[in-house]
Design a protein around this nucleic acid. Structure first.
Lengths: 143, 143
DNA sequence: TCCATCACTCTCCTTGCGGTCAGTATGGCA
DNA sequence: TGCCATACTGACCGCAAGGAGAGTGATGGA
């Protein structure tokens, strides 16, 4: 790690990022939050969350139909991950051909609701971001 | 795309994910939200957001000191990205050796605040997730 | 007998992320 | 005459994410 800037003995986490008082005080929680955000933010988890919130219980293939572009591999992986985190409930009906249903748990629903704030932010600041991007492109084009 | 499940002519986005009324109605907005969440959720952006929210204006090397494990390359890249999106303001002082300062813009600050809800969710549901993970591991260990 | 169904699972294989390290420009200082 | 500091940039390289496509297993229906 020669190029990595050495991390001195800093006293961090003094002021929280936002108004949530305890969020930034505990490094372990911070790691969890980052992990969860990273997980939820991935390409498919959020879409699954959305589709399930919208439709209620869905089978594997129904989810696949409603999520454009997922490969079966990624859909399986995403759902397993969400199941492991307690975000979805997976119900296997022992019939042939197999039938598996997925529903959001309360935890999954509440996560969707929590991301609401970010949706609203994005919606409200959409124009600002577009403008900033255009300005940045203009600046770098002008070297 | 043989393995990808075909996306039929579904009428989607009828019910929003949460209480935000217009969030899920516009595919373009949805893409933007996903992009932004994905961007913020990446390994470094959120930490930069946090550190800058905490310390105010910081120089490149000061940021590097306060963010354990960043390579210069990734710090540069992250900051450029955030600058392009209008989240940070980059000020170059034409002195030698060079001096560059980074501050959060209002947009950057508000994004941090928006993610507050997710932090709170994570904090509140930390135990549920831990429990769910343990239960899942137990289930799959029992095959 | 053969095929379709469903929900995976497995094996490639490519792409891109991110880390390491080396280089660059410029002027003050020893 | 070197050397150092600062904020990068660029080449190289390894690894892991993720897509393509095929295989699987049990059974009901033609």
């Amino acid at each position: 790690m020669t190029n990595v800037i050495a991390n001195p003995d800093v006293t961090r986490y003094q002021q929280p990022l936002c108004s949530c008082p305890t969020a930034a005080t505990d490094p372990a929680l911070e790691a969890l939050v980052r992990e969860i955000i990273g997980r939820v933010a991935d390409k498919w988890t959020m879409i699954v969350l959305e589709v399930l919130a919208e439709h209620g219980a869905l089978r594997f293939s129904q989810l696949g139909e409603r999520i454009a572009g997922v490969s079966q591999k990624m859909l399986t992986k995403t759902l397993r991950q969400m199941e492991a985190d307690g975000l979805v409930l997976r119900t296997v009906f022992p019939v042939i051909p197999p039938r598996v249903e997925y529903v959001l748990t309360d935890l999954g629903q509440s996560l969707g609701a929590a991301f609401c704030g970010v949706w609203i932010w994005a919606e409200q600041n959409r124009q600002s971001i577009m403008t900033a991007r255009a300005a940045f492109r203009a600046r770098e084009a002008a070297d």
